[in-house]
Design a protein around this nucleic acid. Sequence first.
DNA 1: CGCTAACTTGAGGTCTATCAAGAAAAGTGG
DNA 2: CCACTTTTCTTGATAGACCTCAAGTTAGCG
Lengths: 248, 248
Amino acid sequence: MTLHEVPTLLHRCGDCPIRHRAVCARCDSEELTTLEQIKYYRSYQAGQTVIWSGDKMDFVASVVTGIATLTQTLEDGRRQMVGLLLPSDFVGRPGRQTVAYDVTATTDLLMCCFRRKPFEDMMQKTPHVGQRLLEMTLDELDAAREWMLLLGRKTAREKIASLLAIIARRDASLKLRDAKGPLTFDLPLTREEMADYLGLTLETVSRQVSALKRDGVIALEGKRHVIVNDFARLLEEAGDDSDGGLPV
Amino acid sequence: MTLHEVPTLLHRCGDCPIRHRAVCARCDSEELTTLEQIKYYRSYQAGQTVIWSGDKMDFVASVVTGIATLTQTLEDGRRQMVGLLLPSDFVGRPGRQTVAYDVTATTDLLMCCFRRKPFEDMMQKTPHVGQRLLEMTLDELDAAREWMLLLGRKTAREKIASLLAIIARRDASLKLRDAKGPLTFDLPLTREEMADYLGLTLETVSRQVSALKRDGVIALEGKRHVIVNDFARLLEEAGDDSDGGLPV
DNA sequence: CGCTAACTTGAGGTCTATCAAGAAAAGTGG
DNA sequence: CCACTTTTCTTGATAGACCTCAAGTTAGCG
C-alpha cells in the first residue's frame, strides 16, 4: 500500500480505528484538529524495516493497522524481540532522537506519523497527549516485566503456551468475543519470529507447537491457524496464575 | 532506621540527595514547596518487604537511599527479578492502585512518599512532575528491553559480566570517577538475588563468578567486594556492543 | 513445474539445573 | 572472646532441557 492509497476517511481522526486507544485517546475535538494538521501517513510492506537501531528518527508514530516488531541484536547475530507493536501502539520517544532497536513491519503496516518537533510542542501545550503517553508507557513497562519473567524462568513449553494465550486473548478482544468458547486465530509470526520473541530456537518452537498439538492443548489447520478448545487448559500450560495475568 | 531518625535536613527538598534525578527534578521552588507539604518519609530494614504483589498501594514514592528490588513469582516458586530500584528511582503507578510485583528492601531503605491522591492532583496541576515521570518511565522501559535481550539470549558468563558492568558503571557515576582506571565496588546483591535477576540458579552464578575470577577478568576481596582492572575486558565478556550500551 | 521459504523431525552435544556435601562468613548467646 | 547456629557461598557429580547440525517435508509463487 503506498501513500496515495490510504483511505481518505482515515484523514479524519474521528473515524480512525485506533482513535480510542492510541496516544490521542484523551484529546478533545480541538486538540484533534491540531493533530490532524501535523499528522501524515506512512505505509510499509511486510518484511520492510521501518528504522534501524541507532538511526535518527525524526518522527514518532502510532500503528494504525498491521504489526511491527522491535528487536535487539548482539554483535554475533543473536536476536531478541523486545516488543510487539499492535494497532494503537506508539513508536518513538519524545526527547530522544535515536532509537535503540530495529523496528520491522511483520505484516503490511500503516502508521500515523508526527514529525518530532511539532509533536513535542503539542505535548508542552496540551497535557492530554503526555498523560496518555505516560499511561501507555507504564502499560508497556508492565508488559515488558511480565515478559522478563517468561524469558528468565519459563520452560519452552510454557513460553509457547504463554505466547499463544496472549495472541488468542488479544484476537478475541479485537473480535469482541468472550474467551469461553473455542477460539481460533492466525499466528502473525513465523516460527523464527516466535523463537526470537521467546528466547528459543525455531526448532524448539516447532517441536513444542507439535507437542501441544499432540497433547490436545491446541489444534492446527495448516501451519498458522490455531484452534484452542479449552482456553483454561492453555493458561495452565502457560504456568501463570489461574487468573491469567493482565486483562486484554 | 526509624522514622524519627530521618535527618531533618532531608525535609528540605533543596538539600535532598536525589533532588536532581528524581521525579521532582524539573520542579521549580514553588512546586517543591507544594511537594514538601504532602511528602513524608518511610524507612525499611534490609530484607523487609515494602509491598506484596497484588496489594493495594496507597502511596507512590522515590527511593532516597538504599536499594529495593521488584520481583515476580510463578505459582511453583520460580522467581524473576524484574527491576532494581536505586536512589532516585520511582515506585508506584499513578492511576492504578495495585502493584504487580513484590517490592523488597535489599539494603536499609529510605523512601520519600506521597499519598496517591494528592500526588495525582499535583500531576494534573503542574506538568513538570508528569513530564519527568514520563521521561523516567521511558528510561526504565529501555532498560527493561535491554534486560530482555540479556535474559533471552546471553550465556551465563555474559549475564554475570553484564550485571557486574552495570553495577560498576553506576557505582563509578555515584563516586564521580571515570571508568578508565581500576574500579572497585561492593555487590549489593547476594548470589541468589543475582540469580533471580539473571534468570539463573545461585550455583551457576557462583561458578561463573569463580570462572571470571580465575580468568583474571575480575578479582575478589571477600565474597562481595569486586575489583575490575580492565573495564573494556569486562564489557567484552558481557557480549555487548563495544560502546557498552546506554550511558549510565 | 521447479524454486524458495517456512516448517518439521531426528541425532547428538552442550550448557545450565538439580542434587548433594562441605567451607566460609556472619550472627547469637553464654 | 569463644562455641554454636544460621546464612551465604563454593564445588562436584549427574541429569535434563534446549541447541546445533542435518535431512527431509510442505506450502507458496513465479
